[in-house]
Simulated assay, not measured.
Amino acid sequence: MAEGRSFIKWAGGKTRYAAQLVAMAPPFTGCYWEPFMGSAAVFFELRPAKAVLSDANPELVACFRAVAADPEAVMAHLDALPNTPAQFAAVRAQDPASLGAAARAARVIYLNKTAFRGLWRVNRRGGFNVPYGAYDRPYYNRDTLLAAAKALAGVDIRVCDFADPLREAAVGDWVFLDPPYLPEGGFADFKRYTPGQFHDADHERLAAAMRDASSRGVLLTMTNSDTDATRRIYHDFRATRMATRRDINLRAAARTSSDLVLTNY
């Protein structure tokens, strides 16, 4: 079934847990906000009447906007890209600013499906630097991508820092936050989705922005690692453990873990 699914997979994304997280949603009456949208798995599961999706990664935002505007054009570009090491190298080397909207979106989806473990990692100059994954799989499912475009119609999709949506959200709105996690060790500690990393100081800033939003009656849910640092930084919020699996970890034994779900309700 195509409904309720994202068209991409994102490291740390919540596709596997989207239904569980939506079941934990508060009874909100306003707008849904997702400031670290990634694959926007919770958005696609929830299908809210009004939503604002945002991310600091401009390529991800450009991709979502193009899929919403013209999914057929995005698919046409993807159909023209063979899954070969040479093509991967050529696409990876492209300057996205030189591409049209549909081609730019196709580049994101193509790299997402063909790069090693689907990682989106960039260097300090913003250049994509993940190696070829040699996966034999389709770039997209037509029904899923068309359903995603339909769900995204009329949605406000922005490039911005997380602080902006938290500042703008109003009483009765629900904000779901899935930031780069506080370090646990190993491959779980992946945070270079943009040229600037996400550090402990950013988590302190996020916690402060959440406290401010909470004081205005904004409903909040955040997922993060189950660590002492997480519990300390976000001590103002109720913490519930959720069993998870770290597919990005190369060691099978290290993949089983748990996340914290932090709320103000």
Rank of each mutant, 00 (worst) to 15 (best):
T15Q: 14
V42Q: 08
V74D: 04
R137E: 10
K14V: 02
F43D: 12
G172Q: 08
T221P: 03
M222K: 04
L220D: 13
E72R: 14
F36A: 13
P183Y: 00
G172F: 09
N129Q: 01
N249G: 05
W120M: 02
R117H: 04
M75R: 10
L21R: 13
A188V: 13
D156I: 12
D70P: 06
A93N: 00
A93Q: 00
T221W: 04
T15A: 15
G4Y: 10
M37C: 15
Q94N: 00
A170T: 09
C31V: 15
N129K: 01
T227W: 11
Q197W: 09
R216N: 10
R167D: 14
A62K: 05
R231I: 06
L81Y: 09
P138I: 11
A208R: 10
G118A: 01
R137W: 06
A115K: 01
D202T: 04
K14T: 02
A163W: 11
G217Q: 10
P48I: 10
T221A: 12
V74R: 04
G30H: 14
R137Y: 07
E45N: 12
G118C: 03
D212V: 12
A40L: 08
S257I: 01
A254C: 08
T223Y: 01
E204P: 01
P35K: 10
N264Q: 03
V42N: 09
P27F: 05
G100Q: 06
T15D: 11
P138A: 11
A80W: 02
G100I: 06
R238L: 12
V74E: 02
I233S: 04
R238A: 15
E204H: 14
P179N: 11
P165H: 13
D178V: 06
K191P: 00
P82I: 00
E184V: 14
L206M: 15
P85D: 00
G12D: 03
A86L: 01
R125E: 01
K150R: 15
T227D: 13
R192A: 03
P58R: 11
A101T: 11
Q87G: 01
A208E: 13
L219V: 03
P85C: 00
V171K: 15
L111G: 03
A201S: 14
L81H: 05
A56E: 13
V22N: 12
F36S: 12
E3N: 12
W10V: 05
T240K: 15
S6T: 12
E34I: 11
S39R: 06
L152T: 09
G127E: 06
F64D: 03
C160F: 06
R5N: 11
D228Y: 00
P131W: 02
D55T: 07
L219M: 14
M222W: 03
G12L: 01
A106H: 04
R92Y: 00
P35S: 10
D202S: 07
V108I: 09
A40F: 04
L99P: 03
A18K: 08
E34P: 07
E3V: 13
Y265D: 09
H77F: 06
I8L: 09
V130A: 03
R104I: 04
